[in-house]
């Protein structure tokens, strides 16, 4: 049948369609690949590289790599997970991730990835950058300390809420999410009940006054690693 292609992921044959990315094909087949910036409701982006796989022996991000017939993908192996571990450790040291006081702890996808990958500490020195908090909005808060530049909020505001008011400012290590051209969230039309308010994988963009409601032991990632539900066929992780 035209348009149907077969790829092999960790030795398992997956039938999918031309035009799919590796990540989409695997999600549809119930094979979970770790990811951070990719989200089923949002356009393909490819910034975090957590979904890195070895594709025909070369490292590639599964969320942006289109499938091709006969492609051989290595995902859940020690050497690929070691690449992912390094990426996640780098994300931890370049921000200020104080899990012990963060209201997203237990429900945070960055933390959950680190748990799943068995990270007890990063092998790199912490940078402790200076990043101010934008708390001026009545219902939302933007804590740049916890931002991993995945761009989910930028895409969600534009694509799901129809309010393209978030963007990136600056370059390189100085890059940050900017609201209202850098003036702050308060000047935007974003609201606490917009989709953007709950799209952040970490605790960077938060709704105010809803933190710490779920007790320890009943949070999303307290008992089972991120990806367990998706791999068991219970649908998307989020």
């Amino acid at each position: 049948m035209s348009g149907t292609v077969t790829i092999t992921v960790d030795g398992r044959e997956i039938e999918t369609r031309e035009g799919r990315t590796i990540l989409q094909a695997c999600d549809e087949a119930g094979v979970w690949i770790p990811r951070l910036c990719a989200h089923p409701e949002l356009s393909v982006y490819g910034s975090c590289r957590v979904c890195t796989c070895l594709v025909d022996g070369r490292a590639a991000a599964a969320c942006v790599q289109p499938v091709r017939h006969g492609m051989v993908v290595e995902s859940d192996s020690e050497r690929v997970n070691e690449l992912r571990r390094t990426i996640v450790e780098l994300l931890f040291v370049e921000g200020n991730h104080f899990c012990m006081v963060c209201e997203k702890s237990g429900d945070c996808e960055l933390q959950a990835l680190a748990y799943r990958l068995g990270i007890t500490h990063p092998r790199f020195a912490y940078m402790f950058p200076e990043r101010p908090v934008d708390a001026g909005h009545p219902d939302l808060m933007l804590d740049h300390d916890r931002c991993v530049m995945c761009g989910r909020c930028v895409r969600a505001a534009a694509e799901l809420d129809g309010k393209p008011e978030l963007g990136f400012l600056g370059r390189g290590i100085h890059r940050r999410v900017g609201a209202d051209g850098g003036a702050g969230l308060a000047g935007t039309a974003l609201r606490g009940d917009d989709r953007v308010a709950t799209i952040c994988p970490t605790g960077a963009l938060l709704r105010k006054r809803v933190g710490y409601r779920t007790p320890y032991g009943r949070r999303r990632f307290d008992h089972a690693p991120i990806g367990s539900a998706a791999a068991a066929g219970d649908g998307e992780e989020r």
Binding site: N96, M100, V101
Partner: peptide, 19 residues
Amino acid sequence: VALGDCATMGGAPALRNDI
């Protein structure tokens, strides 16, 4: 053995690190 978050990443005392 590094016991706890303060040993492994500075913890709450390290909140002063960007000041």
